[in-house]
Design a protein around this nucleic acid. Structure first.
Lengths: 351, 351
DNA sequence: TTTCCGTTGGAAAGCGCTTTCAAAAGTAGC
DNA sequence: GCTACTTTTGAAAGCGCTTTCCAACGGAAA
């Protein structure tokens, strides 16, 4: 029977001192209405007499009441928060997307939980479990590395939106921004500039996205009837260091090429440095194009020609798709295609 | 009284079908013990007979039970989550710190809510309010721009840890990694290399951190008895573009200098590009040193000499300080001091 | 065997809100 | 002025856990 944890006596409501956070009940008491009425006003779930309305509003602002979202979540069975799994929260590439996701979701009244999966299956799985445990209402997976079946299974439990992947499942939305056309565009540009010997610095071998970039490169080559040579392809890992190593390897192997297409900008940076170390000049001796258009890419020397995809738009679209999913609508894709930001790291070698 | 929302009959426990998420009560029923016992086992809050222990564990794994953190938060009055307010979530500089915060806090069992304040008072205030409403247990403010009084007031309500700022308040911890020594170090290095005319590209004028960088520059100059000249100081804003503009302005003003100290690496990138555009070579004609040591700084051309402070350590320390605060301990500072990463953007102009 | 004391474990209250249900209060209509 | 509806409102149950309180239990001392 004892009233646990009630730190103040029965006259609590009349004692406005250190009673901790203000509760809805206190507002009700202050406004002399029932808690239900306060709740109804808060949520607009029913019509309430104008006079009470005012009284409650007054009480709310007088007591500085703010509803406890935890209690609300529990009662409603919904948490108003959604989870985002990303490779790493400090990804230079996805950063902008995160910002857009945060902004869009925040506006729509959701809290966002960002978690880093480090592009490792088990880490990512742990993130997802954590998010499920936290009862998020949906999960956005930015280029997940989880197997398809698992994602499909996940989609059965909770709405998910995927970027850089594509699965078939209810209550899910895949935004597979296929990188192939972009990669092809870059390679074609190089070809158009008269280059015939074009090296390629690849990304992580097992990742679909990086495979698409390679595919685009090959496609452009094939279309121009330029034979594809494995000697001109160096493995990288999307990092500056990887690009540096790849270029070094290419150079050491005495591969012949007049241009390089790097699977992403960071690799391009590294490659450029390697070139520089060997006394080769960009674009005079070697042309180079990147992929991603990182913010700094217009400021490095020389400013990098690179494939641009609005990553901000990607984030926004992902967030909007999630909102659509949650509201029971079917998201519509509105991703713009890749363009080439032509800057100063490439030159024509024709006539 | 009607039992609301109870979708299945009284024999619910025996019907293992689509009953939605598994609850502690279901586990209790399955293990034939009371909910209290399950809770005690879950939290280790009391000794429980070995046999029941086993039964409960079995039930848990059989039903795949995971406690609902929302309910738990409500009951405990604690949310096990902490908020982080950052300039922007895609900050190239703080990114690493965020990653460290996430990792450290996650390990300690907390969820992290990242919010972007955009270095604007009202945005930041809104973030803080949101976090308070969400009942986070503590807030980490990464170089907040809120006025001191406000932070002090905030600290009264909730434990906070501050980076790049310093306030006096209970249950708060300031990690004011003063930038002055680092800036001084950079400038002194340049002086040591024989430079006497050293330009400075400043950061945002009103920010304490950027003022410290200027102060360090001035201090080094003074110590070497080199007169300080406003003509050699160009306003910037910590962005690549700002650095580019600043350098352009310096050059247009025909300022004479043989070295530049940029308030941060991004400004340095921009400045280098401006130099390059004018045909000036780094470090042959002009030496340049940056501040922050961004990941790409070792890969740009030429690799940038810059002030290095472990931003990863900063994040880790911030997270640990928060944990200390929450556990009622007094955090102890363990920030290492700034070092200079000497690379290839500077050269000696002596003898 | 009885008494006393330290363990275990269950019943139930409570966290702060939402929502159902039914009673109270208005509004018409006759 | 009274019946028959249609709002508006309050009481109370419930969301899924934690935690207090106390009864039951088991073993040691008597």
């Amino acid at each position: 029977m004892a009233t646990r944890r009630k730190l103040v006596g029965p006259k609590a409501a009349t004692t406005p001192q250190a009673t901790g956070p203000v509760t809805l009940e206190m507002v009700a008491a202050e406004a002399k209405v029932s808690p239900s009425t306060v709740s109804r006003i808060l949520n607009g779930t029913a019509k309430v007499r104008e006079s009470k309305m005012r009284a409650v509003r007054a009480a709310i602002s007088k007591l500085q009441f703010a509803p406890n979202p935890v209690a609300r979540s529990l009662a409603r069975g919904r948490s108003s928060s959604i989870g985002v799994v990303i490779q790493t929260i400090d990804s230079p590439f996805y950063g902008e997307a995160l910002a857009a996701i945060e902004k869009t979701l925040f506006r729509a009244g959701y809290s966002v939980l960002f978690l880093s999966g480090h592009w490792r299956e088990d880490d990512e799985r742990r993130c997802v479990d954590h998010l499920l445990a936290r009862r998020v209402e949906g999960i956005i997976l930015v280029t997940s590395c989880l197997p398809d079946e698992e994602l499909v299974r996940l989609a059965k439990k909770i709405p998910i939106v995927l970027t850089g992947r594509s699965i078939e499942a209810e209550r899910s939305y895949s935004m597979d921004a296929d990188a192939t056309p972009g990669a092809r565009l870059a390679t074609e540009y190089l070809i158009g500039q008269g280059h015939r010997k074009i090296a390629f610095i690849a990304g992580p071998e097992n990742h679909p996205d990086s495979q698409q970039r390679l595919a685009g490169y090959k496609a452009a080559l094939a279309a121009a009837k330029i034979p594809y040579s494995v000697k001109l392809v160096a493995p990288g890992d999307y990092s500056d260091g990887g690009g540096h190593q790849a270029m070094t390897r290419l150079l050491d192997a005495k591969a012949e090429f007049t241009a390089v297409f790097a699977a992403n900008d960071q690799s391009a940076y590294g490659a450029m440095l390697a070139l520089h170390r060997r006394g080769l000049r960009v674009p005079h001796d070697i042309s180079i194009v990147g992929f991603d258009d990182l913010p700094t890419s217009s400021y490095i020397i020389p400013p990098l020609t690179t494939v641009h995809r609005s990553i901000n738009a990607l984030g926004e679209a992902a967030a909007e798709a999630m909102i659509d999913l949650l509201d029971g609508r079917v998201p519509v894709s509105k991703l713009s295609s890749a363009t080439l930001a032509i800057r100063e790291s490439t030159r024509s070698v024709r006539g």
